[in-house]
């Protein structure tokens, strides 16, 4: 049903594009996208990183985490669509060649270095996005950390994308640079907090293993406060993932 709607919309768009009125509209849309698609891709990517951090934050209530997870999914999809638009339009404009999509630092254009960073960031984004979409396939097989390692390259991809955004195109205005820097610092703070809580939890978990026979009430309280034990977390995540991917494992 949805596919039918999309096909009908596509046919309508193609027909409208060949009229003169439609062509004028298309030109304005094109100008808008040429100017803003890169910006939107980066903003959506930043939102996806923040939402992803929120969604996997163990101290957050589960309802907010579910909401954050869907926000993470939505912004990731939007970012991907704006990325495709951005790359396609830049190729049509002649600012990058088709080869630049995959091979960085290849073209001899001015600012080739910054454009190459965009290539690298977009390649990483594709991997991050693909692992996110195929999350369900990673559950129950292999080590739990495989998926994490792949998906966590988002932390590397995002600053590269920011560097590309600030330098590969038009000169960034001051408020743009400031807001990018502010977003960057915010994410750094959240990521460091995440890392700290993870290391803290691992430290406490290890210590708890050493004292296994000691099941004092104080310790079990500490366990609850520190966070959800792994089994419950994975069970919840698995159930949630089954919802998204439609698998019935």
């Amino acid at each position: 049903m949805r596919a039918l709607l999309i096909c009908a919309a596509l046919a309508g768009i193609v027909a409208a594009g060949s009229t003169e009125q439609g062509a004028g509209v298309v030109i304005r849309i094109r100008a808008f996208l040429e100017f803003y698609s890169g910006v939107f891709a980066l903003v959506a990517l930043s939102a996806a990183v923040v939402a992803g951090l929120a969604a996997s934050e163990r101290f957050m209530p589960i309802r907010l985490r579910v909401l954050a997870q869907s926000a993470h999914r939505a912004t990731a999809v939007m970012s991907m669509s704006f990325l495709v638009a951005h790359v396609l339009l830049k190729i049509l404009q002649g600012h990058a060649s088709v080869l630049d999509v995959a091979v960085p630092f290849d073209g001899g254009q001015e600012r080739a270095v910054w454009i190459g960073l965009g290539t690298i960031a977009s390649d990483m984004m594709i991997i991050v996005f693909a692992t996110g979409v195929a999350r369900g396939r990673f559950i129950g097989q292999g080590r739990p950390w495989t998926w994490r390692v792949l998906h966590i390259t988002a932390y590397l991809c995002w600053p590269i994308a920011i560097a590309h955004g600030l330098n590969a195109g038009r000169a960034a205005k001051d408020w743009v640079t400031l807001s990018y820097t502010a977003c960057f610092l915010l994410v750094v703070v959240m990521a460091v907090a995440r890392l700290a809580s993870w290391m803290w939890r691992r430290g406490r978990t290890r210590r708890r293993e050493v004292h296994v026979p000691n099941r004092a009430a104080r310790d079990s309280l500490v366990t609850e406060v520190q966070g959800i034990p792994d089994e419950q977390f994975w069970a919840e995540l698995k159930a949630e993932a089954a919802q998204w991917t439609g698998s019935h494992k």
Partner: peptide
């Protein structure tokens, strides 16, 4: 998110056309 992606895709189709 899906809706935005579809809209952007349609706009790109028109531009490419």
């Amino acid at each position: 998110g899906g809706l935005v992606a579809v809209l952007v895709g349609l706009a790109l189709c028109a531009i490419v056309e």
